[in-house]
């Protein structure tokens, strides 16, 4: 039954036109745009595939950046705004009234979300290979796709934390804004070689966006991935997981009472007997139910 639930989660994500447009269509479109644009600028006017060594490098660099961007947006957009919405409309409340644990509901969502990152990664690579003539060994292609795909996990943690921390109205713009800011500062929109050195060192070096792309660049260049990048991504995952736990515990308790109840006292506290010293005071919130 959990597999069926997982299937439902994936199906509804794939049906969402916003997902298709922004997490699959956009990275491919931007890849073609930037690859053509930067190829013209830095490749001395030659955009034909593989003619100049510099051009090929740029084609690969932008391919990795756009695959990473698509994967990142796919996982953030299928976690944060959706969790916020489901909290608001009461789907999580309905889940609690059914024999499905909150943990497996959330787990299915994360797995489904990470699964939706795969089309963007694969399709950007296919576009690069077919349209711009990017050539990598089979092992490199596989390693690249897997690395970028699994490297999107910290962003799922970010999305979940956002989904529990903010309301449905705010979740989408905040997710999109964060995604754009981190991608731009992490060197996904502009090749890192073009970014001013100070920015790179001070900001990009700490961002998971940069390190996700760096993983891919290393693989595409035939090098071993940097341990620092792997550690950075693991660190972000761990840190955000703690945030998720903090954010999740609050509304998880609150699910017993409804979100629509008054803000006078925290209804989350009221469900926990040890935290509700004065039952008559805590009762005011419950009465609205």
């Amino acid at each position: 039954m959990t597999t069926y639930f997982l299937r439902l989660e994936i199906v509804r994500m794939l049906r969402d036109p916003k997902y298709l447009a922004l997490a699959v269509g956009a990275p491919i479109g931007f890849y073609l745009l930037f690859a053509t644009l930067f190829g013209t600028l830095f490749g001395g006017g030659h955009t034909a595939p593989g003619q100049l060594p510099g051009t090929v490098e740029i084609m690969v660099e932008i391919m990795v950046a756009m695959a990473a961007y698509g994967a990142i947006w796919a996982v953030i957009s299928t976690t944060g705004p959706r969790i916020a919405e489901e909290r608001q409309i009461g789907w999580l409340e309905q889940v609690r009234a059914m024999p499905l644990s909150a943990a497996s509901a959330l787990g299915s969502k994360v797995v489904a979300s990470v699964a939706t990152a795969l089309p963007a990664v694969i399709l950007v690579c296919v576009t690069a290979a077919v349209v711009k003539g990017v050539q990598l060994s089979m092992g490199q292609w596989v390693a690249l796709v897997v690395a970028i795909w699994l490297g999107s996990i910290p962003f799922a943690a970010l999305g979940i934390a956002l989904g529990f921390a903010v309301g449905a109205d705010f979740a989408y713009p905040l997710s999109y804004g964060l995604n754009m800011a981190m991608s731009a500062l992490g060197g996904l929109w502009v090749p890192p070689s073009v970014l001013p050195a100070a920015t790179m060192l001070n900001v990009a070096y700490w961002l998971p966006t940069y390190h996700l792309a760096k993983l891919g660049w290393a693989i595409a260049a035939g090098e071993l991935p940097d341990v620092a990048s792997v550690l950075n991504l693991l660190g972000w995952t761990a840190g955000l997981a703690v945030l998720v736990l903090i954010a999740y515990l609050r509304p998880a308790r609150r699910m017993g009472a409804r979100a629509a109840t008054g803000p006078a006292t925290d209804p989350g506290l009221a469900t926990d007997p040890s935290l509700a010293p004065d039952p008559s005071a805590a009762g005011t919130d419950r009465l609205a139910t």
Partner: peptide
């Protein structure tokens, strides 16, 4: 005040219940 999973079809959701 329970909400339903957005984006899925009526029968899909009820079939999920059937499996649950």
């Amino acid at each position: 005040d329970s909400g339903m999973m957005p984006g899925v079809r009526v029968a899909e959701l009820v079939r999920f219940g059937e499996r649950l």
